[in-house]
């Protein structure tokens, strides 16, 4: 059975239009004017068990709306949706026992209390038997290295520590599907990597299906096997990350700063985007020129003071996808 099956799924919001001026406000009191917003337009989505899906798109593309329909918070206008064979809206409570959620921006832990208390409460809310819960907490504590954090009030934790606790909290009831909404937002590189590994391992060890939204190309590249790109409520791309990586995630941005003034000559596969004073910003096509090669080339070109390597922002990648889609369609 597929974990998620959605066919021809659409969602339209009705929002109230507010006119300008007193007269418009007075009119709106008696006869409100509504405007229809097409948030999701006829999308098809099938996720088999054990898949790790990245669900990406710019702000307002329809990501949250889709997740809300999958978790039973929003009722679709048309189309059909089944999550674990259940109707999410009608059987929301039943479904909630089988899905876990982590919202990077919204904590499910009690801010002033140590995470143990939140874990115990969540265990009760999800009706996990006390004996089982104890074992789960012990297992997750070990796996997520939370030993030293169990007695620390959440408000005293760093963001990285908190997110580790958040992910652990969402797994107490052993959900079959885990929804992660921007799980690595605001984290530093090392912590990001740790969280990504945890998610990957979870998928490999337990076969948990993972549905992840992110703005971070790194999350998609390092965690997911399949990427779905949504824009203006429509799915514009649905393919394995391997292919996406080859086509679109092959660029890195290198910011370099030299100790003295220097001229950089461009090479094939390296585009100098910006240069001024001692610093430069390069866009590297790693298919043509692997990162290691670029590094030694830079070091060879002068005395380097600082180098950072970054993924291009998700917006840029999506823009590239769109432009290539347009070319393909034309």
């Amino acid at each position: 059975m597929n974990m998620i099956e959605a066919y021809d799924l659409s969602k339209t919001y009705r929002t109230r239009v507010r006119g300008e001026g007193l007269a418009a406000s007075a009119r709106a009191m008696f006869r409100p004017v509504y405007r229809e917003v097409l948030a999701v337009q006829s999308i098809d989505l099938v996720v088999p068990p054990g898949e790790i899906v990245a669900f990406i798109g710019p702000n307002g593309a329809g990501k949250s709306t889709t997740i809300k329909m999958m978790t039973g918070i929003l009722r679709p206008n048309s189309g059909s949706i089944r999550v674990l064979g259940l109707d999410p809206v009608r059987e929301r409570s039943n479904l909630s026992y089988h899905i876990g959620t982590v919202f990077g921006q919204k904590s499910q832990l009690w801010f002033h209390l140590p995470p143990t208390d939140s874990f115990t409460l969540l265990g009760r809310i999800y009706d996990v038997a006390p004996g089982v819960l104890k074992k789960r907490i012990a297992m997750l504590t070990e796996r997520f290295e939370l030993g030293a954090l169990l007695d620390v009030p959440v408000r005293k934790m760093s963001l990285g520590q908190r997110i580790r606790c958040e992910v652990a909290a969402s797994l107490l009831h052993e959900p079959e599907i885990l929804f992660l909404d921007e799980p690595t937002i605001g984290l530093d590189v090392v912590v990001k990597q740790a969280i990504r590994e945890l998610i990957r391992d979870l998928n490999q060890e337990k076969g948990t299906t993972i549905f992840l939204t992110s703005h971070d190309a790194g999350d998609v590249e390092h965690v997911c096997r399949r990427a779905i790109v949504i824009d203006h409520g429509r799915i514009v791309l649905d393919q394995p990350v391997k292919k996406l990586k080859y086509d679109y995630l092959n660029r890195k941005i290198i910011a370099v700063r030299f100790t003295e003034k220097h001229d950089l000559k461009t090479l094939p596969g390296i585009e100098v985007q910006k240069t001024g004073g001692l610093g430069s910003r390069l866009l590297v096509d790693t298919r043509i020129r692997p990162i290691g090669e670029v590094m030694s080339w830079l070091v060879g070109s002068g005395a380097v003071a600082d180098i950072t390597v970054e993924d291009p922002p998700m917006e840029e990648i999506i823009a590239t996808i769109f432009s290539s889609q347009d070319e393909g369609g034309a």
Binding site: R92, S96, T101, F103
Partner: peptide
């Protein structure tokens, strides 16, 4: 924020 409360049993 209500939405986040709804995904719990």
């Amino acid at each position: 924020a209500l939405a986040y409360q709804l995904i719990r049993p």
